[in-house]
Computed example of a mutant assay.
Amino acid sequence: MQNTKRRRFMIPLISLLTVAALLTGVALVGNSFRFDQRAVTIPGPEGDLAGVLTLPPEGAARGLVVMVHGDGPVEATQGGLYSPWFEGAADAGFATLSWSKPGVGGSEGDWLGQTMDDRAEEVSAAVDWAVAQDDVPTGTIVLWGASQAGWVIPKVARDREDIDGVVAVGTAINWLRQGRFNLLAELERDDATTQEQEAAIEESDRTRSLLERGASYEEYLSAAAGADTMTEARWGFVRRNFEADATADLVASASRPVPVLLMAGTKDRNVDVAETEETYRSIFGSTLTVTRVDGAHSLARPVMEDNDLAGLLTGTFWPRALFAPGVIDGYT
């Protein structure tokens, strides 16, 4: 009887081990990418920045992509989620430089203390570092920027003569209009009642009024009615940046005929991509290429942003499948 019981116990254990081995194998295959990568340290305005330089696995790279993150505490590889972008650039013969934001992943400083001008200064310092390295290919330099980077990369392209191209992913034009668009889109998604919509808009208007008169964090807290109140550091960040508008910097950057690729998700609830496209077209004209995909704000398949479990599992086992069809191929 003891042997029988042991065998009965071992069968499910063996099954679990088999499943674990299969999942491990899938994860290894799904996270095997066509690039080589090494850690780098970049001197930034606030201290050293911990970064990664990604290179094609074979042959010399013919240019460099400099990645400019969106909002939030983003690490150099975004936890591995940038790997498809790294691979797409490597397939085109380009290296990619990316670094963790100040205060994140070993980088010194505090990203919440920055303005958009500070962020642009940081990007420019990273480009200067790359140009000074003998083993970093900077004959052609492309800025890749997502979301909030839409207020950063035009400043860099405006001020530098060595930027040869721009890839803008889900970028906005005006901070306040973007916030209102996002609020209304989320309310619509959640099937909010008229009363809920009115309350949310009233709260948003109240916060905007506080920002416009430079209210302290204590004033904000006493007036905040919603559950999702900002931290003091976040309030300071928003107060320094809420007036951001990319239009003037975009116009200034267009003085040089640098090709711009705008990549927009048709299911983007964060940014009014129609406004962005219209503005970019009016400024860049024939130097602009627009790629629209059936994706969300990050250009992921919409289900990946709407379903946390689906996004987590896909990001863990097969990151390439996160993105809407055509995203990485179009980028390459």
Rank of each mutant, 00 (worst) to 15 (best):
L55C: 13
L16A: 13
L53Q: 06
T314N: 13
W235Y: 14
F9A: 14
T291F: 11
I153G: 10
G311P: 12
D245E: 13
M67K: 06
L250Y: 14
R239M: 14
D159S: 14
T266Q: 09
G139I: 00
G59W: 09
A233W: 02
G93E: 08
E232F: 02
E278G: 00
G165Y: 07
L313Y: 09
V152P: 08
D308G: 10
D71S: 15
V74A: 14
G80T: 05
P56M: 02
A244P: 10
T332H: 11
V290Y: 07
L176I: 15
E186M: 02
G88W: 00
T115K: 03
D36V: 08
R119K: 12
S282V: 06
T54R: 11
A76W: 01
G63H: 06
Q178F: 07
E203I: 01
R240L: 04
S209T: 12
G44A: 05
G79E: 11
Q148M: 13
T287S: 15
M1N: 10
A126D: 03
T193E: 04
A61D: 11
W175A: 07
A227I: 03
R234C: 13
V52N: 13
L17T: 13
A324V: 03
I11G: 07
A21P: 00
A76V: 12
R281P: 10
M1P: 09
G214P: 07
W99P: 05
D205W: 01
Q148S: 12
S222D: 15
G103I: 09
A324T: 02
L313K: 12
D205K: 05
L22W: 10
G103K: 14
G109C: 08
I173T: 03
G70T: 03
G63I: 01
D134F: 02
W111F: 15
L53A: 06
S83C: 15
M230L: 15
L183A: 03
A223S: 11
R7H: 08
G103V: 13
T171Q: 04
D268M: 05
E203F: 01
T231G: 14
R180L: 09
V156C: 04
Y82E: 05
W318G: 11
D135L: 02
Q114T: 12
V26H: 11
Y217M: 04
G326C: 11
A27P: 00
T138A: 09
T96L: 12
A149N: 05
S98E: 04
T18H: 03
A95F: 09
E196C: 06
F284A: 09
I14R: 08
N3F: 05
T291P: 00
Q195N: 10
A172I: 01
A248W: 07
D91M: 11
R292S: 14
V19Y: 06
G236F: 03
D190Y: 01
T279K: 06
V273K: 05
G79T: 12
S100D: 09
A39L: 03
T291W: 09
G170A: 03
L261W: 02
V40P: 02
E243Y: 08
T247Y: 10
S282T: 12
G179V: 04
P73N: 03
V131Q: 05
M10H: 12
A264N: 13
A92R: 15
W318R: 14
F33K: 04
F284Q: 07
M304E: 13
V52C: 08
S209A: 15
G315L: 07
S107F: 05
G139R: 07
T279V: 14
P73K: 01
G113V: 00
E108H: 10
D245C: 05
